Amino acid sequence: MAAASAALPFAAQAQTVPAPQTPHGMMHSMADVDSPLLAFSITEEVKSAPDRARIGAGVTTTATTAVEAMRANTAAMNNLIAAARRAGIEQRDIQTSGFNLSAQYDYTPQQQGQPPRLIGYQVSNQLSVITANTTRVGALIDALVSAGGTNIDGPSFFLADPDASLDTARETALRRATERANRYARAAGYSSARLVSVSEGGGFTPPMPMPVMMARAESADAGNVIQPGQVSNGITLNVQYRLVR
């Protein structure tokens, strides 16, 4: 009996030892952990009316000297910028996008074995103009051309904040991904699919700009016929699911 009574304190003490804790995230069975992984990508596209339009406009001038060509170009560009400002474009939305000064040569003397002859200099200066008035793009092009713009490019339409339109696309893409993963799981003999990881990709692809000469001709003959339409903004989710028994 003495031996038995001596063992009791030890037994009682052993019963007070806390049970081992299951680490967080280890609630699934080993069979679940060892089940197959399913990985795929899913894309969701959302279309929205654009709230910005970008137009390229510039002038090219030539003169016998580089200084004269520069002066002529500066005067022409000032007229172009003034026309954009009169059309309601903010100064912050007018940006130089390209500038080039190059010598011009006559290569005819090469036919007689002579070096090319310098005949002058050419200056090309290009602006990028952004407007928030997407319904008046045709009128803006008319104003730029009337002010001497000869190098017109665009328009291209876009969203000032493309990410703001993606929240719904994110939710829809994840819902579709989960539905697809569950279909795969059932087809493979499992009950469901559990999301393991998700990463985001994707981007915004604006429509191709309208041909410039067509935009100018239609604008002049029939008023504002340039239509903003809609722009596409897409999100791609790269997801990974574990198949669950």
Rank of each mutant, 00 (worst) to 15 (best):
R117P: 00
G113P: 02
Q91P: 05
V67F: 10
S102W: 05
N100K: 13
Q95W: 01
A75H: 09
G98S: 11
R71D: 08
A83F: 04
A75W: 07
G98R: 10
Q110R: 15
F99D: 08
M70W: 05
Q112R: 15
Y107W: 09
P115W: 14
D93Q: 09
N100G: 05
G88N: 05
Q111C: 00
A69V: 08
N78G: 06
G113R: 04
A76W: 00
N100E: 13
Y107E: 12
A72V: 03
S97K: 07
P115F: 14
R86H: 08
Q114M: 10
E90L: 13
I89Q: 00
A103H: 05
A82I: 02
A87E: 02
Q112F: 10
Q110L: 11
A84L: 01
Q95I: 13
D106P: 03
L80G: 00
S102K: 13
Q114A: 06
I81Q: 07
F99A: 10
N100Y: 07
E90N: 13
Q110K: 15
R86P: 00
Q104T: 14
R117L: 05
T74V: 09
I94Q: 03
Y107I: 12
Q110W: 06
T96N: 06
E68R: 07
S97D: 09
Q112G: 10
G88C: 01
Q111H: 11
Q91E: 11
S102H: 11
A75C: 03
Y107D: 13
E68N: 12
R71A: 10
Q110H: 04
L80S: 03
F99N: 06
L80Q: 00
A75T: 13
Q114G: 09
T96G: 05
A82T: 08
G98N: 11
R86K: 14
R92N: 11
Y105G: 04
A103Q: 14
N100F: 07
G113C: 06
T108H: 07
G88V: 00
A82R: 13
A72G: 08
Y107H: 15
A76Q: 02
Y107N: 14
I81N: 03
Y107F: 15
I89P: 00
S97Q: 13
P109S: 08
T96R: 10
R86C: 01
Q110G: 08
E68K: 14
G113H: 06
I81M: 06
R117E: 11
M70Y: 08
D93H: 07
I94M: 11
A84V: 01
N73F: 03
P115G: 08
A83W: 01
D93G: 02
S102N: 07
F99S: 12
E68P: 09
N79S: 09
A82K: 11
Q104P: 04
N78L: 06
P109H: 04
Q114T: 11
D93M: 07
R85T: 02
D93N: 15
Q91K: 12
M70A: 09
I94H: 04
Q114H: 08
A69N: 02
A66R: 15
T96I: 12
N79I: 00
P116M: 06
F99Q: 12
Q112I: 05
E68D: 15
A66Y: 04
S102F: 07
A82N: 08
Q112S: 13
T108L: 06
R71G: 06
N73A: 02
Q111L: 12
